[in-house]
Amino acid sequence: MFPKKHIIIFITICLLLILLPSSILSARSVRIDTNDLLIRSGPGTQYDPLGHANDGDTFPLEEEQVDWFAIDYNGEIGWVSRQYASMISQDTNNHDTEAKRDDPLSFPYVFNIPVEVVNLRSEPTAHSTKLDEIPYNQEVTVLDHVNEDWIEVEWQEQHGYIPAIVVDEMINKQSSTLATLQGKTIVIDPGHGGHDVGAVSVTDRYESDYALYTSRILQHQLELLGANVYMTRDDDFYYALTPRSSLANYVHADVFLSIHYNSEPQFPSATGINTFYRNETDQGLATAVHSAVIKKTEANDRGFESGDYLILRVSKRPSLLLELGFLSNAEEEQNIQSHTYQLNISQGIIEGLEAYFNDKSS
């Protein structure tokens, strides 16, 4: 199931593929986002290097895994970390660039910004340079859909990228989400890391890797909606628990989320999502987020309850610890590996945060 905010974009792209000439069909590629990146013979740092790539280099995409892209590198399969690369679309042929205001299924086309403000970025990533802020109702020219998250636009003689959700007709219904999360400070804690791998899945993968994968997607989605996001780790390194919670206290976070996955090897049929809070004042946050994640993922509901975890004890901010599924269950791990399922987790958390903040302000 696609997240709701992408449904209209997905339908539009499908119509483009059906109705428009083959000259605008796109192929998926991987663009390198850093210099001197090692290309390895397998999906992990334990594999031998095949060579190097630099910022801006592109390669045909062969396969995706949780944290790695497989690319066509000089006629053989090479692997690059998703942390330092992005999946993009490339036009296979040139197409007519004459603007057609009355036909939104042709590129380029013109539309008006339907939200209060949107950041114009130099590259299709939330971490790239902000070129400008485009105010509400400003007319922009859409040049292309880079992927499901970003579109290429031109505005006041500036060329850049904006989040794809702003062209979704559903955005008018979701404008309250944008207003609610705009400017909120969210600290995300990807559980474990480094030598502390956490649970080991039935396919011998680590909870620490899955937690970071989920956290990066959530970070990206929250930043698209205007939130200020801090990560307690953005690499495979172990950081003590107390400083993680202390970061949330230091930045005066509106919400602190610790991301984890569960495991019960002695009960391989166990499935579902748990949510934990510590202070009674955070029960409303737990209720909102847990309910929305269950609704969005349709996972087994294991409920939410108070838990005396160190990372929750140290935090003085509204805090949750989320156990987002069982790595000891083969079918559930397969779901967790799905990018679509990860987007559903992210969207569920976001909708829960929206409900929580709206309830606080009422």
Rank of each mutant, 00 (worst) to 15 (best):
T177E: 10
Q182A: 08
W68T: 09
I24M: 12
E154I: 02
Q182T: 11
M231N: 04
I217E: 02
R278G: 00
Q347G: 00
I350K: 02
V110N: 01
L324T: 02
T12M: 13
V251M: 10
D48R: 10
W68G: 00
Y230E: 04
L19R: 11
A292D: 05
R31H: 05
I39C: 00
E64K: 15
T203V: 06
V66N: 05
R244S: 00
P268S: 03
A126Y: 05
P268H: 03
A270W: 04
Q138N: 11
F237W: 01
L37T: 02
A330T: 08
Y261E: 05
G226Y: 03
P163I: 03
F111Y: 00
D282H: 12
Y356G: 04
T203D: 11
I273F: 11
S246T: 12
L212H: 04
R317L: 10
P190H: 13
I113H: 02
A240L: 13
W155F: 13
Q65A: 15
D196P: 01
H195N: 10
A179D: 12
P49G: 08
E298P: 06
G284N: 09
H220V: 01
D189N: 10
G42F: 03
T340N: 14
A286D: 00
R205G: 03
Q158V: 02
L212S: 09
E148A: 09
L16R: 13
P104R: 13
N274Q: 14
E207Q: 12
S29A: 07
A292G: 12
H290G: 09
I32L: 13
N344M: 15
Q158I: 02
D132I: 02
L257E: 02
L257D: 05
N329I: 04
H339A: 14
A179H: 03
V200C: 01
T275P: 01
K173R: 10
F10W: 14
D189Q: 12
V117M: 12
T275G: 10
I77Y: 04
Y210R: 06
E98I: 13
I349P: 01
Q46T: 13
T203M: 08
I18P: 08
T275W: 01
S291I: 04
Q46C: 10
L222C: 04
I113T: 09
D236M: 03
A211E: 09
D235F: 02
L178P: 00
A99L: 12
D209L: 08
L20T: 09
E148S: 07
H6R: 15
N249C: 06
P243Y: 01
Y47D: 03
N74E: 14
M1A: 15
E63H: 15
F10K: 15
C14G: 15
T92W: 07
V117Y: 02
H52T: 13
Y84P: 00
S328F: 08
D308I: 05
V153E: 01
Q46A: 14
S89E: 06
I11G: 09
Q334N: 15
S269I: 07
E332V: 10
V115I: 15
N249V: 09
E152P: 03
L285W: 06
V314D: 08
L178E: 01
G303Q: 09
S128C: 02
E63Y: 15
N329S: 12
